[in-house]
Design a protein around this nucleic acid. Structure first.
Lengths: 247, 247
DNA sequence: CGCCTATTTGATCTGATTCAAACAATGTGG
DNA sequence: CCACATTGTTTGAATCAGATCAAATAGGCG
């Protein structure tokens, strides 16, 4: 029986959403040496250009990937929730092409690449699961490309909120129709590729349309169907169901 | 000795750019059953919503991923060159989240998932290589997010041209400082998230600045340093060098 | 040649940025 | 517990990058 506070719980849950986990596979994951760590708001876990030797399992809180332009402007590249390993790519790519940092304060667990590889060597099925996870990560990136390329600010914003809400729902981090979302409007702008001023005005529009509410770092969905429609949100790309059975 | 016309040549070259290939691994790849196929301009190889049972190795030409909005507008999600397997994710994700189609006429080879999985089962090192390949695919998507989110049209265009030129250079498809680029200005707009009219005007700017020329479906780089600077292009995300040694 | 598609140009309109300032909330130390 | 600093949100006005609409020109190619 796994202890309630086992740090791997979010990861186990995530992997089980990706495909079936056999008992021995679960055990080898639970047995991985973890270095638990608290990270403060804005703290950087890995920097663009780094050559990491461990990866970061998010236990609690939110992380972001971002990259900085020569002007100092930032573009957020993804948002991560409990169970994610946002720098898993470090196993096979030497150099970080972006920075990984905390949104609000978070709890992470560091896993050395060596330990991770040792677990993967023993189980080709786990390799497939983690590979599948990184393919979904890529699908999410493609969805962002579509939204950034073709949606107006209002619908882009709606899409981001849809995605975050669904991803939090999957890991049981929503309450009724609301969830934590500790991003400032400036950070939302960094994710959506727009100015903070315009984030504010767009948010007011979304509120006045009765689609969402957002205050005290908490998002409440007031009209899910309306929000989905504005965003043209189709959660298929998140691959929440129907994992391919791994033989 | 591999025959000159072996269809797997571009794939072998690509895998060798990702890491060392052992002779038996190369042989098992060369032995994979391939269905060669010509695809015409605009022809769709796999559609959003499909559940493919084979994947597509690009032998010659260009492919694109794209997705269509409710308005009928398209957003291109990636561009692929010889050696790429743009729907490799189908091995682990059931449903296509985008459409894969040809830019100009291309030659592809279809590989059944079953054959692919059989090869991978025999070699964990090949799994790592293909996994690495899909991680680079994701890194490219992140680079597009950054560019779409924060660069003005001019620099966005410059970035796309930089990326394509470098990727073609890697697979030996450039001549001096020029390469084939059979995209219409409308298609460039679909890639860059901008109108075809604005593509045209931006291209004129790039020409008048002496950075590039582009006519007859052929791109010529006239000032690489200037183009790179405008785009803030850093090819690190393409992971062209320094693959991590797979034990 | 004539058809179709791609490129180019001009004029107008609009979504979004920028700059600036006010206002609200949060936190810190004395 | 208040004074003050800091950070985040909101509002207004001016400006601009890029979209849209419309039409002309230029290339391919059967």
């Amino acid at each position: 029986m796994a202890p309630i506070h086992n740090l791997t719980a979010p990861l186990i849950r995530k992997l089980e959403s990706l495909g079936r986990l056999f008992p021995d596979e679960r055990e080898s994951i639970q047995a991985m040496p973890l270095k638990q760590k608290k990270v403060a708001d804005g703290e950087e876990i890995a920097r663009e250009g780094d050559e990491p030797t461990e990866c970061c399992l998010l236990i609690d809180g939110f992380l972001q990937r971002h990259s900085t332009l020569s002007t100092g402007e930032r573009q957020m590249l993804s948002i991560h929730v409990a169970g994610d390993i946002p720098d898993l790519q470090g196993l096979h790519l030497r150099t970080m092409d972006h920075t990984l940092s905390s949104i609000g304060s978070s709890t992470i667990a560091l896993i050395s690449h060596a330990d991770m590889l040792a677990v993967l060597r023993k189980s080709p099925r786990l390799v497939s699961l983690f590979w599948r996870d990184s393919l979904i990560d890529a699908a999410v990136a493609r969805a962002w490309i579509k939204v950034l390329g073709r949606h107006v600010a209002h619908d882009r914003f709606a899409h981001l909120l849809c995605e975050i809400f669904v991803r939090l729902e999957v890991v049981g981090l929503t309450k009724e129709n609301s969830c934590a979302l500790p991003l400032t409007q400036t950070q939302l702008g960094e994710a959506l590729g727009m100015s903070d001023v315009h984030v504010n005005r767009t948010l007011q529009k979304l509120r006045s349309e009765g689609l969402v509410d957002f205050k005290n770092r908490r998002l409440t969905i007031l009209d899910w169907e309306g929000l989905k429609a504005a965003a043209e949100f189709d959660p298929a790309y998140l691959n929440l169901r129907e994992p391919i059975t791994i033989p």
